[in-house]
Amino acid sequence: MMNLQSQISKEEAYEWKSKVYSILAAYYHNQLWNPKDLEAVVKVLEDYNHLYQLKMEDAIEVIKSTNLRHEEDCKFDFNKLFIGPYKLLAPPYESTYLNHDKLLMRAETLSVRSFYEKANIQVDGKGQIPDDHIALELEFIAFLLHQLNQENELTAIKALLEEFLNEHLGKWIDEHLDLVNKQAKTDYCKAWAIIIRRIIHLDLNRMTIS
């Protein structure tokens, strides 16, 4: 395992991670429905799996083998989990897990907002889209990882990234994915839950970033 990772540079590792998180964000942004995109995404995930030995071949295989005929079911399932219009089966918002109010736009949301501000980032549609939507949190992580290659303030960004992972996404992602696992009707959505969990867990608690 070490062997494999030693074959790539630190910069490349950051870029890989950034892209993988971008993929996860795109999934939650409801954008990964084009079979061609999915095909490319699967390749990246396969390599990433191989690189870090994440043991998610089976899950990737499910996504790979999901054919177009079933895609509608996957989409409806996805919508019931994260989009609506019914009561969401697995709300994709941090505050609905960490705030006892179970509402949107709570203290947790504003805390996420201030994290974004530290990196001179804000939600496109601030005040309308809760800042702690999982797609935005994942995108933010992807952005920070990307920045690690672009900027000089490495330590500051690393610290921000670690803090964000541990203080925000890491605090609720398991509960969220457990819900997905429990409520999802399709193997497709369940497979994504496995992939997301493995990828995020890899980076929680400073495991691989530093």
Partner: peptide, 26 residues
């Protein structure tokens, strides 16, 4: 493989600009 989905999630190899989806710089 990444290049194919570049437009979508910024998987392009040589990108320096981060491809924002729901976030923006301020």
């Amino acid at each position: 493989g990444a290049a194919a989905t570049g437009a979508l999630v910024g998987l392009g190899a040589t990108q320096t600009e981060f491809p924002f989806q729901g976030l923006m710089k301020v």
